[in-house]
Simulated scan of single mutants.
Amino acid sequence: MEKFNFEELKVYQKSLIFIDEVYKKTKEFPKEEIYGLTSQFHRAASSIALNIAEGAGSTNPEFRRYLQIALNSIKECVVCTEIAKRQSFLEVKEYEKARKDLSELSKMITSLMKYLSN
């Protein structure tokens, strides 16, 4: 099977792992959150990978624009994670792991943006 170029990017691969973790954890959220926090968390997490994929292969300035949108989605995920912890939907260890993963994704995207600026 042929791969698209963006699928080779480590940041894209890491974003997919994060999405898997979000979907796994949100299955344990209360059912009344299905159209609230769960849905928002799914959309924000998916947006990270979607924007990396959509921007890849474009001009460098265009790709940087999509990467900025992915960074904004990371911020949304930070807030979703915080809300989930405050509502006791996430354990402290799960919260800390999600924050660590989001921080790593943010650093990877920022580095890629700097690289594209050169």
Results as ranks from 00 to 15, higher is better:
M1I: 11
K3R: 12
F4G: 00
F4M: 06
N5Y: 03
V11I: 12
V11E: 01
V11S: 02
Q13D: 14
K14C: 07
S15N: 06
S15K: 08
F18W: 14
I19L: 14
V22Y: 09
Y23C: 11
Y23L: 11
K24P: 04
K24L: 13
K25P: 04
E28T: 02
E32T: 03
E32W: 00
I34F: 15
L37Q: 09
L37H: 10
L37W: 15
Q40I: 05
F41R: 04
F41D: 02
H42P: 04
H42D: 14
A45I: 08
S46A: 13
S46T: 10
A49I: 00
A49L: 04
A56H: 15
G57D: 01
S58A: 07
N60D: 15
N60F: 15
E62K: 05
R64D: 01
R65K: 13
L67A: 08
N72D: 12
S73C: 08
S73I: 10
C77I: 09
C77N: 14
V79S: 12
T81R: 05
T81E: 08
T81F: 03
E82W: 14
I83N: 08
I83D: 03
A84E: 13
Q87F: 09
Q87M: 06
Q87A: 01
S88W: 07
L90W: 09
E91N: 02
E91R: 02
E91P: 00
V92A: 12
K93A: 03
Y95G: 06
A98R: 00
K100Y: 07
L105M: 06
K107W: 14
I109V: 13
I109M: 08
T110H: 14
L112D: 01
Y115I: 06
L116Q: 03
N118E: 13
